[in-house]
Amino acid sequence: RRPMNAFMVWAKDERKRLAQQNPDLHNAELSKMLGKSWKALTLAEKRPFVEEAERLRVQHMQDHPNYK
């Protein structure tokens, strides 16, 4: 499986939080909310998630050198 990108790293915990706050929302609505929230973040706010995604990408390359 591919490593998570920055959005997916961020959305993993954010989706849980949103789902707890909005138990009646379907996954499609949660995804739309997550997309809008991600776009609203500044580059500085996204940076930790971008860095974690890069760390995961490098780790994935080391763990699976033949993955394409």
Rank of each mutant, 00 (worst) to 15 (best):
R1F: 09
R1C: 14
R1S: 09
R2E: 05
R2F: 08
R2A: 04
P3A: 10
P3C: 04
P3D: 14
P3L: 11
M4T: 11
M4C: 00
M4V: 11
M4Q: 06
N5W: 03
N5V: 01
N5D: 15
N5Q: 00
A6T: 02
A6E: 07
A6R: 01
F7E: 08
F7S: 03
F7I: 03
M8W: 11
M8S: 13
M8D: 15
V9S: 04
V9C: 11
V9G: 01
V9H: 00
W10I: 00
A11F: 02
D13H: 08
E14A: 08
E14W: 00
E14Y: 02
R15T: 09
R15K: 12
R15P: 00
R15Q: 12
K16H: 03
R17I: 04
R17W: 02
R17K: 14
L18V: 07
L18P: 01
L18S: 01
A19S: 12
A19E: 15
Q20A: 12
Q20C: 04
Q20T: 12
Q21W: 03
Q21S: 12
Q21Y: 10
Q21G: 07
Q21I: 12
Q21P: 01
Q21E: 13
Q21C: 10
Q21T: 05
N22Y: 15
N22C: 07
N22V: 06
P23I: 01
P23H: 03
P23E: 03
P23R: 05
D24Y: 09
D24A: 11
D24S: 07
D24G: 12
D24F: 08
D24W: 10
D24Q: 12
D24E: 15
L25A: 13
L25R: 07
L25P: 01
L25F: 02
H26C: 12
H26V: 03
N27F: 08
N27G: 12
A28I: 12
A28Y: 06
A28W: 05
A28H: 12
A28V: 11
E29Q: 09
L30D: 05
L30A: 00
L30S: 04
L30I: 13
L30Y: 10
S31R: 10
S31N: 13
S31T: 13
S31H: 12
K32R: 08
K32F: 02
K32M: 12
M33P: 02
M33H: 06
M33G: 02
L34H: 00
L34Y: 01
L34A: 01
G35Q: 15
G35T: 14
G35A: 13
G35E: 15
G35W: 11
S37Y: 08
W38M: 09
W38T: 02
K39M: 05
K39S: 09
K39H: 03
A40K: 09
L41S: 01
L41A: 02
L41F: 05
T42G: 07
T42R: 03
T42F: 00
T42K: 04
T42V: 00
L43D: 15
L43C: 14
A44V: 11
A44E: 13
E45H: 08
E45T: 01
R47Q: 12
R47D: 03
R47I: 01
R47M: 10
R47P: 01
R47L: 12
R47K: 13
P48K: 10
P48Q: 06
P48S: 05
P48V: 06
F49G: 02
F49P: 03
V50E: 15
E52C: 04
E52Q: 07
A53G: 04
A53Q: 05
A53S: 07
A53I: 00
E54W: 04
R55G: 05
L56D: 06
L56S: 05
R57I: 04
R57P: 03
R57G: 13
R57T: 10
R57L: 08
V58H: 13
V58K: 13
V58P: 06
V58D: 11
Q59T: 14
Q59A: 14
Q59F: 06
H60Q: 14
H60R: 12
H60C: 12
H60T: 15
M61P: 09
M61Y: 10
M61W: 04
Q62H: 15
Q62E: 13
D63S: 13
D63V: 08
D63L: 06
D63K: 11
D63I: 05
D63T: 11
H64F: 11
H64Y: 15
P65T: 09
P65Y: 08
P65R: 14
N66H: 07
N66L: 10
N66K: 13
N66T: 11
N66W: 08
K68V: 08
K68L: 13
